[in-house]
């Protein structure tokens, strides 16, 4: 089962490799990983997507917590979080397909961020499922290049991660 986990870490040298090495060393999967500083610049936040049964997920969470630089681990799988991902997509857009690409972009409220006579580059944001859906439609039109950020996630409701 897929899990989206937020890991709040000290914004320090080498932390990313500690987390990445934990996953590779213990044979845990990482589907995606994104990381950037938070509003508190001493803290970075990682969002990672992983897979495994309950026992593996429990170990992942415990092992992450065991890292000295990890401040908090939040598992969003129970629907307590909102996930968003961005994709940049370069698609072939020549005579007959140019209008079709635009229609798809419009339906998904995506944006064209670069244009050439033979291509469009599209910026799409949304839940990972929505990104999958737009890619599904663009793929037959000629998908030249794709880059996804992997999802970032935040908890629902009024409270921040510190509970305040």
């Amino acid at each position: 089962m897929k899990h989206t986990i937020s890991v709040l870490v000290e914004n320090e040298f080498g932390v990313l490799s500690r987390v990445a090495a934990l996953f590779s060393g213990r044979g845990f999967n990482i589907d995606s990983l994104s990381v950037a500083p938070t509003n508190d610049e001493t803290i970075s936040r990682m969002t990672l997507v992983t897979r495994g049964d309950d026992q593996i997920l429990e170990q992942i969470s415990k092992q992450l917590n065991k890292l000295i630089d990890v401040i908090k681990v939040i598992d969003f799988t129970d629907g307590s979080g909102i996930e968003r991902e961005m994709a940049l997509v370069k698609v072939t857009a020549e005579d007959e397909s140019r209008a079709e690409v635009l229609r798809i972009v419009d339906i998904f409220r995506a944006k064209i961020i670069d244009v050439t006579p033979r291509s469009y580059t599209i910026e799409a944001t949304g839940s990972p499922a929505k990104i999958d859906a737009i890619l599904e439609l663009l793929r037959p039109l000629g998908l030249k290049e794709l880059v996804r950020t992997g999802p970032v996630a935040i908890g629902r409701g009024a409270k921040g991660w510190k509970g305040q």
Binding site: F13, G14, S17, R18, A21, G25, I68
Partner: peptide, 16 residues
């Protein structure tokens, strides 16, 4: 050595 010992230490530090 920080990279090398990361998986076999409880923690390690590079003093900058």
């Amino acid at each position: 050595i920080i990279g090398i010992t990361r998986p076999c230490t409880k923690h390690n530090f590079l003093v900058r």
